[in-house]
């Protein structure tokens, strides 16, 4: 176990050192991505500035939701997004086949050897939004609340990683999976808004089959003491458990798809 942990650590270190060779490029990536998200968030601010609220949420509450959503996403995506988005190419070019003959778990190898440092601005933007909104909302930050926030963020990160894993695994069976990531982001953008503005069928979908609501709306509602439709009193527990549950399902999907994998390489 200790050796495995050391291997993961070394893989991450190697990747980070390689990326840090070009620091200017990394800083530029942080600034530009932060700028990109700021543009999208500014559009949402314009709506709330003009209309006063969205689905009963005022700007500080929605800013907290946006901060939470982008922070949780970045935490999961830095370990999974780049790796699994390119799974289609890895399968097609036979690179994944090479991975299968190595004496390591292929999922772990992909995750830890591909850690992506480009999410600096996601974390910064998320933290700034959460802190500024938290100050305006005058929340009672006791130990339990902080623990709940950290566990919810971990859950959102696991959820993100689990979904990318499941999407990447589709390449084992279909030979293609990249186009599914586009669809993922169409749904992911829904998690920027209070789910209450969507109709009941979509709210149900976002709480069950495609659990994007646990990436922002559910945990933030719990933290802000706002009611969560459909889930009710189960919301606080599910806000923390959604990530681990989805991770288990994703692990099952990964194994099932890997069992069916026969190679597409040339």
């Amino acid at each position: 176990m200790r050796e495995t942990l050391m291997l993961w650590w070394q893989l991450m270190r190697l990747r980070a050192r390689a990326r840090l060779q070009n620091r200017l490029s990394l800083v530029l990536a942080w600034i530009s991505q932060g700028f990109g998200y700021a543009g999208a968030f500014a559009s949402i601010w314009v709506i709330l500035n003009r209309f006063g609220g969205l689905g009963g949420w005022r700007w500080p509450e929605l800013a907290f939701l946006l901060g939470f959503q982008i922070f949780g996403y970045a935490l999961g995506a830095m370990f999974t997004f780049t790796q699994f988005r390119f799974m289609e190419e890895q399968v097609r070019d036979g690179e994944f086949d090479m991975l299968l003959v190595r004496p390591v778990n292929p999922w772990s190898f992909l995750v830890f050897s591909g850690i992506d440092l480009q999410y600096g601005s996601h974390f910064a933007l998320g933290l700034v939004l959460m802190i500024m909104a938290g100050l305006q909302l005058d929340l009672d930050w006791d130990l339990l609340m902080i623990l709940r926030l950290l566990l919810s963020l971990m859950s959102a990160a696991m959820l993100t990683g689990a979904m990318f894993t499941a999407l990447g695994a589709c390449a084992f069976v279909l030979g293609r999976s990249r186009f599914l990531f586009g669809l993922y982001f169409d749904f992911w953008e829904l998690s920027r808004y209070p789910a209450i503005i969507f109709g009941l069928p979509l709210q149900l979908i976002l709480l069950t089959i495609l659990p994007f609501s646990y990436m922002g709306f559910v945990p933030v509602s719990v933290l802000l003491g706002k009611p969560v439709p459909i889930l009710g009193d189960a919301a606080p527990m599910l806000a923390i458990l959604a990530g681990p549950i989805t991770a288990l399902i994703a692990a099952w999907i990964w194994r099932a798809c890997l069992r069916r994998y026969q190679g597409f390489g040339v």
Partner: peptide
């Protein structure tokens, strides 16, 4: 600049806000 990825994000941020894609400019400050 040799950083197309960064330029892509700059363009995305500018377009998202200033094109009126999500919010028309008549609602802007």
């Amino acid at each position: 600049v040799l950083e197309a990825h960064s330029l892509e994000w700059f363009m995305r941020g500018l377009t998202a806000l200033l094109s009126g894609g999500l919010v028309p400019l008549w609602f802007f400050p």
